Simulated assay, not measured.
Amino acid sequence: MVVKLLHEKGLKAEHAYTAAFASIGLSVASWYASLKAEPAGTARADRWGIFIGEWAPTFFGLGLALANYERDHDRHHSTTH
Rank of each mutant, 00 (worst) to 15 (best):
residue 4 K to D: 09
residue 5 L to C: 01
residue 6 L to H: 04
residue 6 L to Q: 10
residue 7 H to S: 00
residue 8 E to H: 02
residue 8 E to L: 01
residue 9 K to G: 05
residue 11 L to V: 07
residue 12 K to Q: 13
residue 13 A to E: 00
residue 14 E to Y: 08
residue 14 E to G: 05
residue 16 A to K: 04
residue 17 Y to V: 03
residue 17 Y to C: 01
residue 19 A to G: 03
residue 21 F to Y: 10
residue 22 A to M: 15
residue 22 A to W: 08
residue 24 I to R: 00
residue 27 S to K: 00
residue 27 S to P: 09
residue 27 S to D: 03
residue 28 V to F: 13
residue 28 V to L: 15
residue 29 A to V: 14
residue 29 A to S: 06
residue 31 W to R: 04
residue 32 Y to G: 00
residue 32 Y to M: 15
residue 33 A to G: 09
residue 33 A to N: 03
residue 33 A to L: 15
residue 35 L to P: 03
residue 35 L to Y: 15
residue 36 K to R: 15
residue 37 A to T: 10
residue 38 E to W: 10
residue 40 A to F: 12
residue 41 G to W: 13
residue 41 G to P: 08
residue 41 G to C: 08
residue 43 A to S: 08
residue 43 A to Y: 09
residue 44 R to L: 15
residue 45 A to R: 14
residue 46 D to Q: 12
residue 48 W to G: 01
residue 48 W to A: 11
residue 48 W to L: 12
residue 49 G to N: 08
residue 50 I to E: 12
residue 51 F to C: 04
residue 52 I to Y: 04
residue 52 I to F: 15
residue 53 G to R: 01
residue 54 E to K: 09
residue 54 E to G: 08
residue 55 W to H: 04
residue 56 A to G: 06
residue 56 A to L: 02
residue 57 P to K: 04
residue 57 P to C: 08
residue 59 F to K: 02
residue 59 F to R: 00
residue 59 F to L: 04
residue 60 F to A: 05
residue 60 F to V: 15
residue 60 F to D: 01
residue 61 G to A: 10
residue 63 G to K: 05
residue 63 G to L: 13
residue 63 G to P: 10
residue 65 A to H: 01
residue 65 A to R: 05
residue 65 A to F: 13
residue 65 A to I: 05
residue 66 L to T: 03
residue 66 L to V: 05
residue 68 N to K: 13
residue 69 Y to H: 14
residue 69 Y to R: 00
residue 69 Y to V: 09
residue 70 E to S: 02
residue 70 E to R: 03
residue 71 R to V: 03
residue 71 R to T: 04
residue 71 R to P: 00
residue 72 D to Q: 07
residue 72 D to C: 07
residue 74 D to V: 06
residue 76 H to S: 11
residue 77 H to Y: 12
residue 77 H to F: 10
residue 79 T to D: 05
residue 79 T to I: 07
residue 80 T to Q: 08
residue 80 T to E: 13
residue 80 T to R: 13
residue 81 H to A: 09
residue 81 H to G: 13
